[in-house]
Amino acid sequence: MRIGILTGGGDVPGTNRCLKAFVERVAHDGHEVVGIRRGWAGLLDYDPDEPDASAERTLVTLDRERVRTIDRSGGTVLHTSRVDPSRVQGFEVPWFLAGRQLGDGPYDLTPHVLRVVDALRLDALVAIGGHDTLSYALRLHHEGVPIVGVPKTMDNDVHGTDYCLGFSTAVTRSVEFIHQLRTSTGSHEHIAVVELFGRHSGETSLVSAYLASVDRALICEVPFDPERLAALLVEDRRRNPSRYAMVTVSEGAYMTGEIPDVADPLGPRETIGAATGAFITHLTGQDVIVQSLGYLMRSGGPDSLDLMVATNFAVMAGDLTLDEERGRLVGLQSGTYGDVPLDVIDRGVKRVDVASLYDAEAYRPTVRTVVDKPMFLY
């Protein structure tokens, strides 16, 4: 078989290990793996009429020698993008397709992608990514492309699996940086606002605050009143013998009265962390440290759990591919590895179970029960 593989969306630690383990699994049986650079953008940028130039730009042969040491670092050696070929903006259209598009866009260039899959003689395709990447994988499945999905996102918000590759390392990084930030926050007797990634799901903020014993946590699922938050943090600071307080905030959190920022999820806006810090200072006169962990959460190599998950997800994806199982998503459910139909992606993104895990009045994790909950909760 000739199998294509790509990584889309945000990079997370463990992706390279997943690529390596997949290649080792299928190469053992004599199959060929073609890496596609920059996620779905790689297929979009491939010109079947100029195969040599396109291959140099968008493809890389992944054999055992090529992947031997890639798992020693984070990120993805295939690079990544957030391009969705079914919704291509005008500036994203490859030059060799630009003159064929009508109207102002966005354009659905799936017919071109299907032509590229045929031109590359791919017997199967493996997509490693989060909800957006896997949503387009589902589109290709409906178009007849043999495809298997691997969930990878530090937001841990993909339905059909209790765990997504990258989440453990992101939380581990967040907890470490939160504890380190305590030294400056406490030394100056300030309030610290720590902004974490998580636009549609507040799980990283919730779990990081839960594990690091942060005073308050703001999540995407529950709008917050800045005046109430400020009063709570002032009281937290007063009660703390070290005279400081901390709050984590998901980048997708929003204040009461706001309209959630969903129209352009990657568009420019003032960060919610900065806005929250400014409100607290205005309302209380208290000095505030605002720290966005951002890409630090997903930088560097994976922890041991993500190494384990990356390896096992890759082996399962390899087995499904070689067994000619199509339209499947590998994952973990109730602590057990398995796979589910890829169309579970149509359920949207997974959200925090507010009723069980969050006090919406006090803005803090309140885990009422962990019975029957997955290891990382949600």
Rank of each mutant, 00 (worst) to 15 (best):
I5C: 00
I5L: 06
G9I: 01
L19Q: 05
K20I: 01
H28C: 12
D29Q: 10
D29I: 01
G35V: 09
G39I: 03
A41M: 12
A41V: 02
A41D: 15
L43M: 13
D45H: 10
Y46I: 00
P51H: 06
D52C: 02
R57L: 12
L59T: 02
V60P: 01
T61Q: 10
L62G: 02
E65K: 08
R68T: 09
H79E: 15
R82P: 00
R82Y: 00
V83G: 00
V83C: 06
V83I: 15
F91W: 08
F91R: 00
P94E: 11
F96R: 04
G103I: 02
G103K: 04
P106Y: 14
P106S: 11
P106L: 09
V117A: 00
L125P: 12
A137N: 11
H142M: 03
H142S: 13
I147S: 06
V150G: 06
K152H: 03
K152V: 07
V158T: 07
T161E: 07
D162H: 04
Y163F: 07
A170C: 03
R173V: 05
R173P: 00
S174N: 08
I178M: 11
Q180A: 07
E189W: 04
E189D: 15
L196T: 03
L196Y: 11
F197P: 03
H200M: 13
S201N: 14
S205T: 10
S205E: 12
L211Y: 14
L211K: 06
V214H: 08
D215P: 06
P226Q: 10
R228I: 08
R228H: 10
A230V: 14
V234K: 05
D236F: 03
R238T: 11
R238V: 12
R239N: 13
R239K: 10
S242F: 13
Y244I: 05
V247T: 08
V249Y: 03
Y254G: 09
E258K: 02
I259Q: 15
D261S: 02
V262W: 13
G267H: 15
G277A: 02
A278W: 09
A278S: 06
I280T: 05
T281N: 13
T281A: 01
H282E: 11
L283C: 12
T284V: 06
G285R: 07
Q286P: 05
I289M: 05
I289S: 03
L296E: 15
R298A: 00
P302M: 04
D303L: 14
L305M: 14
M308E: 09
F313I: 15
A314S: 01
A314N: 05
V315A: 02
M316H: 13
E324F: 07
G327D: 15
L329F: 11
G331D: 15
S334Y: 09
T336H: 09
Y337M: 05
D339E: 15
V340C: 04
V340Q: 14
L342F: 02
D343K: 02
D346H: 08
D346W: 00
V349M: 09
V349W: 12
R351S: 13
V352W: 09
A355P: 09
Y363D: 11
Y363S: 03
R364P: 04
P365K: 12
T369A: 04
K373S: 13
P374D: 15
M375D: 01
F376M: 09
L377S: 08
